[in-house]
Design a protein around this nucleic acid. Structure first.
Lengths: 134, 134
DNA sequence: TCTCATGTACGAAGCTGTTCGTAGCTACAC
DNA sequence: GTGTAGCTACGAACAGCTTCGTACATGAGA
């Protein structure tokens, strides 16, 4: 019997360093460790094996999968950027707003400066939602 | 020049356990360790000294202050619930949405089901914002 | 074929967050 | 005055995250 629990359908929310890697994968598509490392290293110096180790951990968490058929394994994010962000928003809503995303939105809006076009954009989205679910 | 940076005016974002304690303090007002412990213990068993230790750490982080004039010290949150939540929203926006709270809102709205009254509430807030900052 | 640049695997250290046990102090009841 | 319940302080254990050094494998070029 494996010690590991049965694979959850939802991968856990990524940590900070993991999220940085995911951003590279979303932007570049399937990439090697070297690809990811070079991209990250430009912003902030980081060791090659650090990125490698992270990616190995992320496999265990099912945050990425990899194609090991070539010498340089190729990694890809398992979840889409949108789904991951949604997960992160949901997490914050659960943690700080009793699970209500709407309450989160209200707080966020009230506390942030926004330009008129931005407000219109939000309004437009509201209209679509209202139309979509009457 | 001191090695230590000058105290930041903004206390850091609370961790999970710290946030649980803050919620009790916001709800009850200034409280003793026992007060906080009893409140938390009802939801999820936790040791008394665990709460004490957390509160001591939170003092170092300036998340709470305390009145030590009585035998049982009395703790109070330094930041308001609204300010703390705003901070947490800002953090998520910075981490996942390039610092744009508006983008966070758009994503959150698009990904969550909302009732018509909730949507109206958001619309109302938008109207107020537009009026307030023309 | 042999070398070495480049790849993966893995252990471990340093840090933070969380939990709790233990020690020691003190006000209050008796 | 003395005992004890209840308080604070503190150290330490454990887990997760992040970083990197080292060991080992291997394919490609001389």
């Amino acid at each position: 019997m494996p010690k590991q629990m049965l694979r959850q359908p939802k991968p856990p929310r990524p940590t900070n360093a993991e999220f940085q890697i995911l951003r590279v994968l979303w932007q570049r598509g399937p990439s090697t460790v070297r690809d990811v490392h070079d991209a990250l290293d430009r912003t902030k110096p980081v060791g090659y094996t650090t990125v490698l180790k992270l990616l190995q951990i992320m496999i265990e968490k099912s945050l990425v999968r990899r194609d090991a058929s070539t010498r340089s394994h190729v990694y890809a994010a398992t979840a889409s950027e949108a789904a991951t962000r949604r997960q992160m928003v949901t997490d914050l809503a659960k943690r700080a707003f009793g699970g209500s995303t709407v309450r989160l939105v209200l707080h966020a809006l009230a506390a942030t400066p926004a330009t008129a076009p931005e407000l219109d954009q939000i309004r437009k989205l509201l209209d679509e939602k209202k139309k979509g679910e009457p």
